[in-house]
Amino acid sequence: MKIRNLSVIILCFGLTVFSCKEDDEITPEVAPVRDAQEVYDENILEIVTYLETHFYNYEEFEQNPTYSDLSAMPYTVTPNDNFEIVFDTIAGANSDKIPLIDQVTSEEVTSSDGIVSTLYYLVVRDGLGGVIHPIDQVFANYNGLLIDGTLFDSAISAVPFYLTTVGTLYGVVDGFKEGIIKFKARQGYTVNNDGTVTNHNHGIGAVFVPSGLGYSAQTQTGIPAYSNLIFSFSAEKRVLLDHDNDGVFSYLEDLNDNQDSFDDDTDGDGIPNFIDVDDDGDGVLTTDEIEHTVYTEDQNMMVFTSNIAAQVYYDTYAAADEVLYSIIDNNDGTFTLNTVIFTDSNDDGIPDYLDSSVY
């Protein structure tokens, strides 16, 4: 899978992680280094020209309700859940189509070589499920295209990606990550009679990636050096990660909320909180300074018989400082709801696990 970022950051913090090395992950060739600003100037001109002269199958999506109605059984399902984005040239019979340049959104992103780059992304629908954070794992199906329309990679069934490189866990190229975190994951899903899964109300979109946010000078199979990339995708499922298994999701350990989990280090020991089992350095493990709560039934003594019932109970009754950690399928027709509460024993506004004065 060529979305993978092949650079590896080795973090020797005693954290045990597992390699997800793909069979096509080989040492890439590197082209002669060019001036990064010069390359970007060429890249962005090519991308803007593409956006001005191409459109996507927006009419196919517009002919149906944007989202499926999951409020009652049986679900009213929109075909949009299964549509994928298709690009084509504005010409001939398609000369009256709306160009992508009038439908995309842009933001500035600084690439690893220090160049401020404009990243364009297309929002077909935002999605109604959970927010996708830069430190999460996401399951997505996608198409990867060169600017000339060549398909260099794809997955018709959702495959998992770690969005950030941690230890031996490969992340993804920056442009793909910056694009997909603009969307939300699925709101629900249906298991079909043949065992396949149809996801509902997930984000659908595309991102147009200058080479500095892709592979830059690296040559991949089917991807020449300094190539612009286009990824269209369905952001089907989000997995919240807890890299150090301390009971606090990694995205919550981005305390300054700057989308960078590596610069939050409460105790100043050089280990970012999201891989530090004792965040405040007081000698007490983080997992022992938060409150773990397990629910097997609701307030009416009714056993949770579905994932949705457990979620509804949490949404209705959870305390302000209580966070849903997991809903476990007990494989007997029942579900268990696990939450954590970030205890603040001295009421100073700082949770115990971040407060070294509380042991």
Score class of each variant (00 low, 15 high):
V323Q: 09
F304D: 07
A31E: 04
A91G: 03
T296Q: 08
G195D: 08
T219M: 03
N201Y: 05
N192V: 08
T66G: 12
V159A: 04
F18W: 03
D279N: 06
V166H: 06
T16I: 14
N82H: 02
V8M: 10
T343M: 13
K237C: 01
Y120D: 11
N228W: 01
F233H: 07
A318L: 10
I327M: 04
S232M: 05
R186Q: 09
D35S: 00
V172C: 14
G222V: 00
D315I: 11
E62S: 13
Y215W: 00
T76G: 14
G92R: 02
S19C: 00
V191I: 10
D264P: 03
S111G: 10
I101T: 01
E59W: 11
M301R: 14
A140Y: 00
V323C: 03
S157V: 03
Y67Q: 08
E297T: 10
V104G: 12
T66Q: 14
I290G: 09
G130I: 15
G188K: 09
G212C: 03
Y189G: 13
Q259D: 13
D194F: 13
Y353S: 07
D194H: 11
G171M: 11
E107A: 11
V358M: 09
G214A: 07
Y56R: 02
N258C: 12
K2L: 14
G268H: 04
A319Q: 14
V17G: 01
T89Q: 06
T164Y: 00
G222H: 04
A217K: 01
E289Y: 10
D35T: 04
R238L: 05
G268Q: 08
E46M: 09
I204D: 03
H292I: 13
V33G: 03
P65D: 08
Y58I: 05
P224M: 01
I101Q: 11
F139N: 05
F335H: 14
S326L: 13
A31C: 01
F342T: 08
I101G: 08
N346I: 15
N346K: 15
F152M: 07
I156V: 07
D264Q: 08
F274W: 06
N245L: 12
G247H: 04
G127S: 09
C12S: 15
L15V: 14
V197C: 14
G171Y: 06
M302E: 14
Y50P: 06
C20V: 04
G333T: 15
L213T: 06
S68N: 07
Y314S: 05
Q63L: 11
E46G: 01
Y40K: 07
G114E: 04
T296D: 13
T105L: 15
P351W: 12
Y75Q: 07
G195V: 10
I10F: 09
I26Q: 07
E46T: 01
D246T: 14
I230E: 08
L15C: 10
N245W: 08
N80L: 02
G144A: 05
S157E: 08
S356E: 11
L128P: 10
F262T: 11
G222M: 02
S157T: 07
V33S: 06
F61E: 09
T286Y: 00
E236K: 01
T293N: 14
T196R: 00
D348Y: 11
S227P: 09
L70W: 00
N141I: 03
D24C: 12
T190Q: 11
N300G: 12
I135S: 15
L122F: 07
A217F: 02
I26H: 10
